[in-house]
Computed example of a mutant assay.
Amino acid sequence: MKSNDFPGNKRNRTMVGLRQPEPIPGANSSVVRRSTARADMLKNAGINNEATPEDVPTIKPLEGEWLSGKSALSDIPVANIVQSKYQPRMVFDEKAIDELATSIQAIGLGKPILVRPLPEGKYELIGGERRWRSVKLLGWTTIQALVREMSDGVAMLLALTDNNQEDLSDYELGRSYHRILENGEEQSQRALARRLGVNVSTVSRCLSLMQLSEKIRSLLDTNPTLITGNYAKRFLEFSKTHLELVETTVISMAKDGVQQEAALRHIEKAIAAATKFPASAKVTGIGFEGLGKLKIVGSRVEFKCMKGINPELLSQHFEKLLRSLDPAKVVESSD
């Protein structure tokens, strides 16, 4: 019996299970779909589906570039801007300001300044003081600014982060870090470092400068690059025992341009010279039964108490003796 599957079989058969191809959509099908989608969109927007394209209202841009409910980008009068007490930068390089003014004059202001509104149409400058100084130099009457309402704590942080894009000294950073922590905006150095996106060791190193004496910090106020965070610890260690020497040395650094390494070497040598006795220094000792031994080393007089003797009580007797003593009787003879 001949198989019906034989290739030579001329019988017309439809193969069972094969899907018939979908008809090719007509040229107007996509138009219909777009029209339907557009009609649905207009319906959802509350616009009559029968409206023509000319009837659809045009969406206009907002007046001003509003960035949030409490921020706006606009041109404000340069004369209405006041400097912020939270500005971390303490010294402004006039030459750098001139160069920035030249750049702004040539290509325009690349980044708006950051301000917060004050009463009577004034604005507090939070970020961009170098740009503000430059446009004042150019004689501009207005400047583009991001006007943003913010608390004092946020103003501190934003003033610091804005200036982080431009080099700040370790002392300037340390002052700002200290202010933020004192204000309670952040509770720890680690939390502050995390919020600013810096290493906690950087925060700690810069804060160490704030532990220097008031006299040294007053010098850093006018010359913030005088001492860096990397050397602050060594200056602090020497200050614990030889504060006057350290302060005198830092004054010479500011006056004569002495570098940190040279200053620290000078301090080390001065301390060594003050505590080292000459090999030829005469050393004598006198024993006092029941009390201890009196020792003379060069120009120093030492007394070593015996066991059981109260040094404080003994020193009181020494004090009475010395107060009753006529200095003329112990002056070295010139003969």
Rank of each mutant, 00 (worst) to 15 (best):
R323S: 13
P311C: 06
T284N: 15
K282Y: 08
S334L: 15
G257S: 09
I47E: 05
S280H: 05
L226W: 04
I143P: 04
T225A: 15
N80A: 15
A262G: 09
L73M: 12
L209K: 01
E63A: 15
M41I: 09
K293F: 07
Y86L: 07
K43S: 15
N223C: 07
Y86A: 08
H178E: 10
F238V: 05
M41D: 12
R300W: 04
T222V: 14
V78C: 06
A101Q: 00
L42Q: 06
L294E: 01
D256W: 02
Q144V: 07
L209E: 06
Q87K: 05
A155F: 05
D162H: 08
G108H: 03
I267W: 02
L226E: 09
F303V: 03
D162K: 01
G257R: 09
T14R: 13
I59C: 05
Y86N: 04
K269N: 13
G197Q: 00
A106K: 14
D162C: 11
K329W: 11
G290V: 00
V258L: 15
G308M: 00
V82T: 11
A270P: 01
Q20L: 11
D326Q: 06
L321Q: 09
S213Y: 04
S252W: 02
C206G: 09
R11P: 08
I227F: 04
R195Y: 04
T248I: 07
I47Y: 09
L181K: 02
L220W: 01
F277P: 08
D5F: 08
P327L: 00
L125H: 08
L160D: 00
R217Q: 13
I59F: 07
W66M: 13
S334H: 10
I271F: 03
V82F: 06
L212Y: 06
D221C: 02
L138T: 00
L212P: 04
K295Q: 06
M156G: 00
V16P: 13
G229R: 04
K255Q: 14
K85F: 07
R195H: 11
G184T: 06
A270E: 08
R19C: 07
Q260P: 00
R38C: 15
T248W: 08
G197E: 01
I296A: 14
I251K: 14
A279G: 10
V135P: 01
Q211A: 15
V198N: 05
R130F: 05
F288A: 14
E186M: 14
P23Q: 10
P21E: 03
T225H: 14
Y86Q: 10
K276S: 15
